[in-house]
Computed example of a mutant assay.
Amino acid sequence: MPMNYARENVISLASARAQRSGKPKPELTLIVRATNVQADGEVHRHIGLNSAMSLDELHKVLNIVFGVGGEQSPWRFEDQFRQPLDPSETLGEFLLGAGDFLFYFWGLWQINLHCVEFYPRDNGTPRALCIGGSGGLGTDFDQASINAELTGTDTIRDVLSSVRPEVIDLVDRTGVFDFIPLLQALDLKREPLIDAIRHRTCRTLPVENSAEASDAFWSCVLALSCLGNDELFTEVIESTMGTLGWVADDGSPLRAPEITSACATSLAILAELGGYGPQQLAPVDRLDIYRELLCF
């Protein structure tokens, strides 16, 4: 048997068990690698998708992330056995676990969809989000523009309606769309489980009065809300402050120690609350603090 035939017809044991069980499947976030292979190169996209979305909705998402949605062309999905699929069926019926795959055809293009990972999701998780990619089908890869189109104007307005004006101003001035999915995922309309003392203290921050200190503090809060490591925190605050136009006295880019020093008093108070520094609370408790800081 040819190796490529065997590889394309492997049946996921996890998928088979799930199909036999008949139990309702919880909604998940699927991390899907979408690839278009041509003789002169490859185009890749990594996308976070709601497992409950229909294949018809997925068709629209793929057209956006690959930049091919401007024309009407025949399209279809096929399963791993090359059988056509009903567009009304949901993605989670076919990508049930890591290693499962589908095929998407749009005109003459073929895009291979492989499930890489999956995670539980909540109401704040975006239905579709492009988290990386390279190459393009006639256009350059522009992740921010892709995600802005995926999210939609109404959703962006709804997300920002719950955000403090200072943060909206910062996001607007940076033009960094990546903050919108972050704020959406934080679900700022959720009632924070935070005590009265922490609530009052959060409402006083930042305590510094300068514009630079305010931008530094909110850059730090947004970076902390990512729940990443120190490297990610540094990358986010340095890139954000640089995009906002803040520089050191000698004109060089601001580095993380200078940025945190600009809002040192506020960060010290945040550390006392458990939202910063070596004595941080558990992630779920820190998120409640960050929600309280960011919500309007």
Rank of each mutant, 00 (worst) to 15 (best):
A185D: 14
H199R: 15
E149T: 15
L186F: 02
G41N: 06
P2S: 15
G132R: 04
S15G: 09
R20Y: 13
L294S: 03
S12K: 04
P24V: 05
I289W: 02
P181T: 11
C115K: 02
D40G: 00
Q184H: 13
A148H: 10
E8V: 02
I11N: 07
D158C: 03
D100W: 11
G99V: 08
R82D: 14
M241I: 05
E42M: 08
I64H: 06
F105M: 11
A211I: 04
Y276V: 00
L224K: 09
P283T: 05
P26Q: 08
L30N: 00
L287C: 12
D40S: 10
A34W: 06
N9H: 15
Q184T: 03
C263V: 04
F177Q: 01
K60E: 15
I146S: 01
G138P: 02
T90C: 10
M53V: 01
A185T: 14
R157W: 00
G22L: 11
E89C: 14
E27K: 10
R190H: 12
Q110V: 12
L113K: 05
Q143A: 06
V61D: 12
E292L: 05
V10E: 10
P165H: 03
E42I: 05
W218K: 09
L137N: 10
L205K: 09
E78C: 09
T151V: 07
T260Y: 07
G22M: 13
I237R: 02
H44M: 04
D56M: 13
H44Y: 11
L58W: 14
D215N: 02
T243G: 08
F296S: 13
L95I: 07
I237D: 00
V176Q: 11
N123I: 03
A196N: 01
G132T: 03
M53N: 01
H199Y: 09
A128V: 11
T260M: 13
A16T: 05
L55I: 08
A34P: 07
F81R: 12
R173W: 07
V247Q: 14
L30T: 00
R7V: 08
R203F: 00
S162Y: 14
P74Q: 00
C220T: 11
I197L: 12
S12Y: 07
V159D: 02
E212S: 01
I237T: 11
W246H: 15
S54G: 07
A128G: 13
K189T: 01
M3P: 01
F105D: 04
D285F: 00
P253A: 11
N112S: 08
D100E: 14
F94I: 01
R200Y: 04
S219Y: 05
R7W: 10
N229W: 02
P120D: 12
D187I: 04
P257C: 09
L273R: 08
A39N: 10
Y5F: 13
H44T: 04
R203P: 00
S225E: 10
V159R: 01
A144W: 09
L30F: 02
V10F: 05
A148G: 06
E208V: 07
V43I: 15
P257I: 08
L273I: 05
R121Q: 06
R190Y: 05
E71Q: 10
G152E: 05
I31G: 02
E117D: 15
V37P: 01
E231I: 12
G152H: 07
A248L: 00
V284H: 15
G92K: 06
I259V: 09
A185R: 15
L267H: 07
A256M: 14
T234W: 01
L294F: 03
Q280H: 04
T240M: 00
H44W: 09
D100M: 11
